[in-house]
Structure formats: structure tokens, C-alpha cells
Amino acid sequence: MGKQTGTNIYIRPFTGDDSEALLDLEQRNRHFFEKFSMARSDEFYTLDYQQYRINEFEQCQKNDAGYDFGIFLQDGKLIGTISLFHVMRGSLQSAFIGYFLDKEQNGKGYTTEAVKLISTYAFNKVNLHRIEAGVMPHNIGSIRVLEKAGFHKEGLAVKNVKINGKWEDHQVLALINPNDE
């Protein structure tokens, strides 16, 4: 896959050359990202672990289990991550979407753009029928991102994800491949 380009950003799979930039992104945003995901061990915030993650990303893609991309400004600066994970085949043809954007870059439309890019990739390259997202109800910004990218609300999953030791509710949103309707 070549560069997936939007107006301000592009997404592409991670390579080994991205490990330092990924570590920097994770370290600078540690407390911000952990508000919306699980707390990470100190080992996570090492260069070796980020290199390991990138190798895992590559294996997941080879096995059609997940697709992990960096979100980059046009100048090549890594500003976030976006992924399709838990890819399910057979009669489902679906995956979940997840993303993190550098707190300094919030509010500029980059995440919405990245969600649109990865959705196009999911439907046109990976041949998925459905992409699902789960967002904590208080994360209004993330819900807005998904709605701007065409996702629709489907309901509330009660206490379905354990985040930082607490079971959290998630607003379920989904996007259906427009070619399949």
C-alpha cells in the first residue's frame, strides 16, 4: 500500500524506522493516552518495546489480524496512531477501529481525516463490510470525530472494557461499507 493521503495528513503502516518517533509520541502523551486506555508498564515506554510493537504490527498485517498505521503530517512528523484490530472474517467481515492523536494536535480535524482514510482502506483494500468503534460516553470529541467520518450510533455497551482497573461503558458506533448496502 502506498501513502494514503488527505489534505493535511497521511497514514501509512509503521516501519522499523518509526520506532524512535513512536516512542517519543507515546512518552509525550503518556498521561493523556492512559485516560482512554489501560495504564502501561514502564517497559512499554522503551525503544526496544516500540520496536517489538512495530514487529507485531507487521505480523498482524501479514496474518490479516490487524492493520496499524501512523498518522503523519505532510512534513513526515508522526502525530498519532490509528488501527483496525480484531479483524473477523467469515460471515462478519468486520474490525474494530482505535486511534490516538498527540494532545498538541487535537481540534484540527486530523483524526477525522485519518478515520476517513483508514475506512476507505478497510473497505477498498481489506474488503471489510463493517467497522465498529467503542468510545467512553464522556469522550465527546472522539464521538464527534466518528460521526463526522460517517459512523452512526448503535447503542451503549455497559461495563464492557476494563480501563485502569475500572469497568467502563462504551458508546458503540459503526460504519458500513457503502459498496455493500
Rank of each mutant, 00 (worst) to 15 (best):
I54E: 04
N164P: 01
G98Y: 02
L175N: 06
T5N: 09
D17I: 12
A114S: 02
E104M: 15
N55G: 15
K153I: 12
A157M: 14
L156R: 08
D18G: 03
A21D: 03
T15A: 08
H170K: 06
C60F: 15
S83C: 08
F57M: 02
I71Q: 01
V87K: 04
K166F: 13
I79N: 01
V115E: 00
F32S: 07
D75F: 04
D24M: 12
A39Y: 12
E26F: 12
I97Q: 01
A149N: 03
K159Y: 07
G70H: 04
G98A: 04
A95V: 05
M88N: 10
S37I: 13
N55D: 15
E132S: 11
D18M: 06
N106C: 15
D42M: 05
Y52P: 08
P137E: 00
D17V: 12
A133I: 03
D48E: 13
E26T: 10
F100E: 14
G90D: 04
F44T: 06
A122G: 07
H31P: 05
R12Y: 02
R53I: 10
L78G: 01
P178K: 09
S91D: 12
D24A: 15
I163K: 03
F36R: 11
I71E: 03
T15S: 09
Y49L: 09
G150Q: 04
I97R: 03
N164S: 10
R144W: 10
F57T: 04
I54A: 01
D64V: 11
L47Y: 08
F14T: 05
I131S: 01
Y121L: 06
E43N: 09
E26I: 06
Y99F: 08
Y49P: 07
E147G: 07
Q50E: 09
N106I: 15
H138T: 08
A21L: 02
N124Y: 11
G70S: 05
Y67W: 13
V115R: 02
F100N: 14
I163W: 02
D75L: 04
Q59V: 12
E113G: 04
V115D: 04
Q105I: 10
F123W: 02
K166D: 15
Q4H: 11
I143S: 06
H86P: 05
E20G: 09
